[in-house]
């Protein structure tokens, strides 16, 4: 595989990842969110493997495999079990309506491109054009966390943000050193268990997973 072909494949994958980020913003069904999140993980894993192949770096295969198991199977499965146990089938409720969210999202993407433009010119990697996409994914994940009310959708937003970070690590550089990547994967796994426990705690205490209920701790006026 020639370098330019690898670069082109990667650009396509980057575009698709950005697309899934927007899809997460418009999806109204909770199960649909999980499917899109799994797709995003799969794209990320393929992209990592492609970078690894074209650059001849074998440790990236391990990262790709980690992403595949963690973000395509393990995390969506955990969330899937949770929504069944907790019987969450309702539609996603948003704070800001979806068309407005989309427009804010587009503005964020432009902002990310602008912010990373000086770095893009410095990079000599095949993957350099994808750094802006990575930052956009981070920003869109953040946007999703801000504009959603349910604990579960906030978590999906958080994980998608994490995907963006991972994409940044493989796109700006050829992946972080393996020690760091393993550590990050471990942290995410622990975080997944913690929010699992959290859902049950929130459910039993508040009788719902709606974060509207959690507005007691405010400053007294």
């Amino acid at each position: 595989m020639s370098l330019s072909l690898a670069a082109q494949i990667n650009s396509v994958l980057a575009a698709l990842i950005l697309l899934t980020s927007f899809a997460l913003l418009v999806q109204r069904r909770v199960q649909g969110l999980l499917h899109i999140f799994a797709w995003q993980g799969l794209l990320l894993s393929i992209s990592t493997a492609v970078v690894g192949y074209s650059a001849g770096l074998h440790h990236l295969y391990i990262s790709a495999l980690l992403t595949l198991t963690l973000k395509v199977f393990a995390l969506p499965y955990i969330l899937y079990v949770l929504i069944h146990k907790l019987k969450i089938h309702k539609e996603v409720e948003e704070v800001v309506n979806i068309p407005t969210t989309m427009i804010i999202g587009i503005a964020l993407v432009i902002f990310s491109y602008d912010l990373t433009s000086p770095i893009r010119e410095l990079s000599t990697l095949v993957t350099r054009s994808t750094l802006a996409v990575a930052l956009s994914t981070v920003m869109l994940g953040l946007l999703m966390m801000i504009t959603r009310k349910k604990a579960l959708t906030q978590i999906v937003g958080f994980l998608s943000l994490e995907n963006g970070l991972f994409f940044a690590a493989t796109s700006a550089t050829y992946g972080m050193p393996l020690v760091v990547e393993l550590g990050v994967a471990l942290d995410i796994l622990i975080a997944a268990f913690i929010f699992g426990i959290f859902f049950f705690q929130i459910r039993t205490t508040f009788d719902s997973l709606d974060l509207k209920e959690m507005e007691k701790l405010k400053e007294d006026e």
Binding site: F198, Q201, I202, F206, E213, M214, E215, K216
Partner: peptide, 8 residues
Amino acid sequence: PAAIEAAW
């Protein structure tokens, strides 16, 4: 409830 909210 307050503790769980704080932790979240």
